[in-house]
Amino acid sequence: MQYEFLSRPAMTAAKLTLDAGESITCEVGAMIAMSRGFTVETTSRNKGGSGGFVKGLKRMFAGENFFLNHFTATNHAQSLIIGPAMLGDIIHYPMTGGTLVVQGSSWLASSSGVEIDATFQGIGKALFSGEGIFWVKCSGTGDLMLNSFGAIHCVEVNGEYVVDSGHIVAFEDTLEFHLGKAGKSLIGSFLGGEGLVCKFSGQGKLYFQSHNPPSFGKLLGPKLKPH
């Protein structure tokens, strides 16, 4: 598969070129346009993989759709244009056997060699962070496309690093993480608006986004007509 990013960085779309037999799994609704030579299959699990219903259910909790669309090229050099719902960027992450933990709404697409699994990190953590700490675990080999709300930034963590949980896009699972408070005291952290943050330790890549969808949502919410 070849890929090209168009109209970066705020209105980014990814143009993927697939050869006959190659297959890509996308978030439902991600397809913008495509060549004629594709067949599309909608399932609740990885293509040809196991898991089925339970994994589908887990994905739904992870902020992803229950269903996945698999696009398989039936001819050579077929192109597929995909994009996320929100304004922001897309990056490519090559999977080489390691595991990447992706924030639920940041997963956009992956090639067929990548296994997607929603893992639940424990309800206590989710409640305290208030950001919906649900993650999609990606492993295997192949291509992974991640999207962000706003710009995307990569940090090679070596030691310790702190990120507001709503800004995390993805991190390599060689990094350990736990939730902590941003300031010295709990009250001070909340007054400062930072709430609880993710503290990473170890060595690995960490991707985060410049904007935080829940913060934007909270800004918009009061201005919208109640339902």
Binding site: G83, A85, G217, L224, K225
Partner: peptide, 15 residues
């Protein structure tokens, strides 16, 4: 490359 409708359905959750 984007749709207003997708943005609206996202923001609907915050109403």
């Amino acid at each position: 490359t984007r749709q207003v409708r997708s943005f609206l359905s996202w923001s609907n959750a915050f109403r």
